[in-house]
C-alpha cells in the first residue's frame, strides 16, 4: 500500500466548494473525466439518503502492457463510490472516494481518496489523502499521475 498526502487551498468558500465539486448533477466529475481520463460519457448517480453516490467511468489512457494483461486485455469501467460528510453551515467537510475496476478481484486495484476541507471564511483549505492498494509492483507511479 502506498499513501500520498497533498495540502490544498481553494479560493472559494467551503459552501461553494461543496456545491460545485459535489453537485447532485455530477457536472464537475463529468467534466473531470471528460478532460482528465478521456471519458466524456462518465455517469454520476444522484446522492442517496446515505449521502453516497457512484461514478462510473472508463479511462481512455495508455497503459503499460502488463497492466492491461492484469485487467484482462482492456481497461474495464471503474466504479468510484463516493461518500460526503457535510451539512449546510458546517465548517468542515469530508469526501471519501473509493475506486475499483469492475472486474473479478478488482479490490486489488483499490484507490481511496479522502478529501478533508475546512472553512476559512471566503476560502477553504484542507488535505487530500490518496491510498493505493495496487498489488502490482511499478503501478503506483502511473496511478499517481
Amino acid at each position: 500500500m502506498k499513501e500520498a498526502v497533498f495540502d490544498v487551498n481553494f479560493n472559494v468558500s467551503l459552501k461553494t466548494f461543496i456545491e460545485t465539486v459535489y453537485s447532485d448533477d455530477g457536472k464537475f466529475y463529468k467534466s473531470f473525466h471528460s478532460e482528465v481520463t478521456n471519458d466524456p460519457k462518465a455517469k454520476v448517480t444522484s446522492w442517496d439518503h446515505t449521502h453516497s453516490r457512484t461514478i462510473t467511468f472508463t479511462p481512455d489512457v495508455k497503459l503499460p502492457g502488463f497492466f492491461k494483461t492484469a485487467l484482462g486485455g482492456a481497461i474495464p469501467p471503474i466504479n468510484d463510490a463516493q461518500q460526503l460528510t457535510y451539512s449546510e453551515g458546517a465548517t468542515s467537510a469530508k469526501g471519501l472516494s473509493v475506486s475499483t475496476p469492475s472486474i473479478k478481484g478488482g479490490e486489488r486495484f483499490r484507490t481511496q481518496v479522502e478529501i478533508e476541507i475546512q472553512s476559512c471564511g471566503a476560502t477553504c483549505k484542507g488535505k487530500i489523502r490518496i491510498e493505493l492498494t495496487a498489488s502490482i509492483f511499478g503501478l503506483q507511479g502511473m496511478l499517481e499521475g
Binding site: V8, V12, T16, T20
Partner: peptide, 14 residues
C-alpha cells in the same frame, strides 16, 4: 491532476 483541474474549474465557475 485533480487539484489542478479543481482550481481551474472553481476559477471558471466564479
Amino acid at each position: 491532476k485533480f487539484i489542478e483541474f479543481t482550481n481551474r474549474y472553481l476559477a471558471d465557475a466564479d
